[in-house]
Design a protein around this nucleic acid. Structure first.
Lengths: 197, 197
DNA sequence: GTCTATAGTGCGATAGAC
DNA sequence: GTCTATCGCACTATAGAC
């Protein structure tokens, strides 16, 4: 007989999402999550630094993919190309199969301010990762910061639509749409911005 | 003899910032903050819903000013004018006299992830407030969201520079600079975007 | 795996302003 | 009297220390 089943991190995440849906975040104790996952409360804290983190198990991978996508572009590439690469890296992490799970998860994040805070911190961390990757590809400091701000704005808006009720389009298309809207909102047609593609 | 001195909220904020500077956020208990402010621990929680909130006492006013500034613009005004109004409302909340206090406070926010999370939540709330105000002035939904994203990006970048070491320029000028950088980062010169002023 | 500090809540009592 | 701000006490759960 095995001492413990593998995949404790995922079991804890799944158990937590279920319990949050059943009784709400506040009304769910870490002990209950651990019990449903078949581990002790102490073990929960070996896998997650705190209760909020339990719904953010995959956030590290996301940042890694963005870094890799930008790093794959040639040194000194135009910012708009780097943005495209970053957005492509993000879109790859949100295939349509995950949409249903993402909707359930997002509903919990939206319902609980404590989880929303953590989500915002993850997005900010992702933004910092992107700035770092852009600088490594030769972008200068103010441009890298504003480019990352814009890219994350586009991603976030697209993601919210992706998990919106009845939405069928994929992340890549929704990101293209949001990028166009951002350009339009800033008041210019930006002629030639996409001329290189 | 009076039973309690007025201004408990501000006393608690000041005491908290001092204690965080002296011993760090984690090593400061709510009881210590309350004691320095001359109230009990229970009273702390009547002024602030939790420990993190103690450094965000004025955040409601900020949102109110942004709302008011946008609401003062004419119905159906161009988005770029509404952005200018929103940024002007924000800049008015950061006069040079507050810069020194803002630097001390920001140093604490940067040092403590828990406080950083709350800061991000406040910024997101401010963004939502701005979206609401823009929609009330006739902006359509996608444009309002992206405009607010852009405006908050500009504000945040400008604010970080405003409290930067040795920075002398005011918020209004720094916001103009950041807005120009954002437009440049998106790849177009945006001719005519500022023609109305 | 056990123990403990402390964040945060619920409820009741109290004292002053009006 | 009502209203509001404070205090006191008991209590749970988180999270870290040992």
């Amino acid at each position: 007989m095995v001492r413990w089943q593998p995949g404790a991190t995922e079991r804890l995440s799944v158990a937590a999402l279920e319990l949050f849906e059943e009784h709400g975040y506040d009304q769910t104790t870490v002990a209950e999550i651990a019990e449903r996952a078949g581990v002790t409360e102490r073990t929960f804290y070996r896998h997650f630094p705190d209760k909020r983190e339990v719904l953010f198990a995959g956030s590290g991978q996301l940042a890694d993919r963005v870094s890799a996508a930008v790093a794959a572009e040639p040194e000194g590439a135009r910012p708009s190309l780097l943005v495209d690469a970053a957005l492509a890296g993000l879109a790859a992490s949100f295939p349509d199969e995950r949409r249903s799970y993402a909707r359930r998860r997002q509903a919990r994040l939206d319902a609980e301010p404590a989880l929303r805070e953590r989500e915002l911190l993850k997005l900010a961390t992702l933004k910092a990762t992107l700035v770092e990757a852009l600088v490594a590809r030769g972008a200068s400091d103010p441009a890298a910061t504003m480019t990352a701000e814009a890219a994350l704005s586009v991603f976030h808006v697209a993601f919210l639509r992706w998990i919106g009720e009845g939405e069928q389009r994929g992340m890549a298309e929704l990101q293209r749409e949001a990028l166009g809207e951002l350009r339009a909102a800033l008041g210019g047609a930006n002629p030639g911005a996409d001329a290189g593609r």
